[in-house]
Amino acid sequence: MTERFEPGKTVSFRLPPDTPLHVVDYLTQKKNELGRKFSSEIAPIFVEAVSQKALGNADNAQISITLPEGLTADQKEWVKHPNTKALISQLLYQVVTKPTTPLDFDQQLLTDPVEEKEPVFKTNAMIQSFAQKTFLNFDEDDD
Rank of each mutant, 00 (worst) to 15 (best):
M1L: 08
M1C: 10
T2G: 01
R4Y: 02
R4G: 05
G8K: 01
K9T: 07
S12Y: 12
S12H: 06
R14V: 12
R14N: 13
R14E: 15
R14A: 15
L15C: 10
P17N: 05
H22Y: 14
V24T: 14
D25Y: 02
D25H: 10
L27A: 04
T28G: 13
T28Y: 08
Q29A: 13
Q29L: 14
Q29F: 09
K30Q: 10
N32E: 15
L34I: 00
G35M: 11
R36P: 12
R36M: 08
F38V: 01
I42Q: 03
I42P: 02
A43R: 01
E48T: 09
A49E: 05
V50H: 06
Q52G: 13
K53F: 15
A54W: 04
L55E: 13
N57Q: 08
N57I: 09
N57E: 15
N60Y: 14
A61H: 15
Q62I: 12
I65K: 00
T66K: 11
E69S: 07
L71A: 12
T72L: 04
T72E: 11
A73I: 12
D74K: 02
D74M: 06
Q75D: 05
Q75E: 15
Q75M: 14
K76Q: 13
E77D: 11
V79D: 05
K80W: 09
N83D: 15
N83L: 09
K85L: 14
L87E: 13
I88Y: 11
I88F: 14
S89H: 12
S89M: 07
Q90Y: 10
L91N: 00
L92A: 14
Y93N: 09
Y93W: 07
Q94T: 07
V95M: 11
V95I: 14
V95N: 02
T97Y: 02
K98C: 05
K98V: 03
P99V: 09
P99I: 04
T101W: 04
T101L: 06
L103G: 03
D104K: 08
F105I: 06
Q107G: 01
Q108S: 15
L110K: 05
D112M: 12
D112Y: 07
V114S: 05
V114C: 07
E115Y: 10
K117C: 05
E118H: 06
E118V: 07
E118T: 13
P119W: 05
V120H: 13
F121G: 11
F121K: 02
K122T: 15
K122L: 15
T123M: 12
T123F: 14
N124Q: 05
N124E: 08
M126H: 01
F130T: 06
F130Y: 11
A131H: 01
A131T: 08
Q132S: 04
Q132L: 10
Q132D: 03
K133S: 06
T134F: 01
L136T: 02
L136M: 02
F138V: 04
F138Y: 06
F138T: 07
E140F: 00
E140M: 03
D141P: 01
D141R: 01
D143S: 00
